[in-house]
């Protein structure tokens, strides 16, 4: 079965990203396909590499990146939501004249159309949020 995963909240503030991660991992362990993980609303904050949690806590951002590497997951951060919240990649930084970018490894920024396309391609879309 093909699952699409939608993450609507940032890391740490809300459990949504943890639940989404655990669901995604369990689905992959069972041999299901993850069409895409789409980060929307404050969920775009899952995609900043500047996150520095305390040593004794999980690193939610890196955890997504590592899972993406292992399973070749498509981690997409919504561009419109990202621009509002200051999540930028090198191209976006250049286009908008910013002095830095902060997108984490394994994530990329793309349009909202990717969310709709995920809904079209997936058998189920699982939304995690507040």
């Amino acid at each position: 079965m093909k699952f699409g995963i939608l993450v609507n909240e940032g890391p740490y503030q809300h459990q949504a990203s943890d639940t989404a991660f655990n669901f995604t991992k369990a689905a992959l362990d069972k041999g299901h396909e993850i069409v895409r993980v789409f980060f929307y609303h404050d969920g775009v904050n899952n995609g900043t590499r500047l996150t520095t949690p305390p040593q004794d806590d999980r690193n939610i951002v890196n955890r997504w990146g590592e899972l993406a590497k292992e399973y070749e997951l498509d981690l997409v951060v919504c561009v419109a939501a990202a621009q509002r919240r200051g999540i930028v990649d090198a191209d976006e930084a250049k286009r908008h004249g910013k002095d830095a970018d902060n997108i984490a490894e394994g994530f990329h920024i793309s349009g909202l159309g990717q969310l709709i396309e995920m809904g079209i391609k997936a058998d189920r879309v699982m939304a995690f949020g507040d």
Binding site: Y40, A80, L112, L115, I116, E117, G119, I120
Partner: peptide, 30 residues
């Protein structure tokens, strides 16, 4: 596709960004 809106506007951004999904999604002829 059904977009279920359960939040008031302005207090949080969900309504506004939810509407953006609907408008973008309209181009996909679903």
């Amino acid at each position: 596709f059904m977009y279920v809106n359960r939040r008031a506007p302005y207090g949080t951004i969900y309504a506004l960004e939810g509407l953006e999904v609907v408008l973008i999604g309209a181009a996909f002829d679903q």
